[in-house]
């Protein structure tokens, strides 16, 4: 028995190792949003301000491929009117097909474009992955239309990344060339320069434009971009839960009545 325990203990000891300092991402910051919880909704003002942040700052490098201009006027979204959505679409230039002469580029070799319509999706800032990498030192800025669902930690994670710059790295940590220190990003070296700071965007509704507000609003907007049907989902969920609870109750009463004499 003792020998068995010794063998067992030694084999266990052979498997253990000692811990090392890690550059795992820090847990995301604790920040709350209006859309959290079973009754959460998107704050319309935050969505519109967040759209402004995306448009003025993020869209320089990040595409939003899955959002169409008509989404901007749909229920559960930023709440633009159909006319406003049409005007926003028209303010963008999207790739146009060949003209009547069959040309796809203009006289200076640039691809033909036309004003957007509500049926169009947001045009990407770069024509393709190679162009995006060339413009960003080899790094590829990811598309943002699903970023909040595509990252563990969701909105809190994206908020932490966006506000997690401007800190002093520990002395033993080496910041790589062309990278920036952000401990909320795995490995702590992120290719994106700090995108936002106090006063980066001037909000037309007079909301203070500090970093926290800008980050909060752009994360709200990006959460909507990832999950535009959230409000409809939670509303329908409430009705379904109410129905199911009533129906379960009726089924329970039926069950008890049927089985009353049977056990």
């Amino acid at each position: 028995m003792r020998k068995t325990l010794l063998v067992l203990g030694l084999s266990l000891a052979a498997t253990v190792t000692f811990a090392q300092p890690s550059t795992d991402a820090l847990p995301p910051k604790h920040v709350s949003f209006s859309f959290e919880g079973p009754f959460g909704t998107y704050d319309r003002g935050a969505l519109q301000r967040g759209f402004q942040v995306y448009k003025e700052v993020c869209s320089a490098c990040h595409s939003l491929n899955h959002i169409a201009f008509h989404n901007l006027s749909e229920d559960g979204g930023p709440g633009f009117t159909d006319e406003q959505a049409k005007a926003i679409a028209a303010s963008y230039r999207v790739a146009a097909g060949p003209n009547d002469q069959g040309e796809t580029v203009d006289s200076s070799g640039r691809p033909l474009t036309r004003p957007g319509t509500i049926a169009d999706h947001f045009p990407p800032p770069f024509a393709n992955e190679q162009a995006a990498r060339t413009a960003n030192g080899g790094a590829l800025p990811p598309d943002l239309s699903l970023v909040v669902k595509a990252r563990a930690g969701g909105p809190q994670y994206v908020y932490s990344i966006v506000t997690g710059f401007h800190q002093k790295p520990p002395s033993w940590f080496k910041v790589l060339p062309n990278k920036y220190y952000n401990p909320y990003f795995a490995g702590w070296n992120i290719s994106m320069p700090p995108p936002l700071a106090d006063g980066s965007v001037k909000f037309s509704d007079g909301t203070p434009d500090n970093l926290d507000q800008e980050a909060h609003d752009v994360v709200t907007f990006l959460t909507w971009a990832s999950d535009p049907r959230m409000e409809e989902r939670k509303r329908l969920g409430l009705g379904v839960m109410a129905f199911l609870i009533v129906f379960s109750g009726l089924l329970f009463l039926s069950y008890r009545r049927i089985w009353r004499d049977a056990h």
Partner: peptide, 19 residues
Amino acid sequence: RRDFIYVATTAVGAVGVAL
């Protein structure tokens, strides 16, 4: 009352299926 509960359950169930 016993029949009522079965009728009510079936009716609510039918409405649920339609929805």
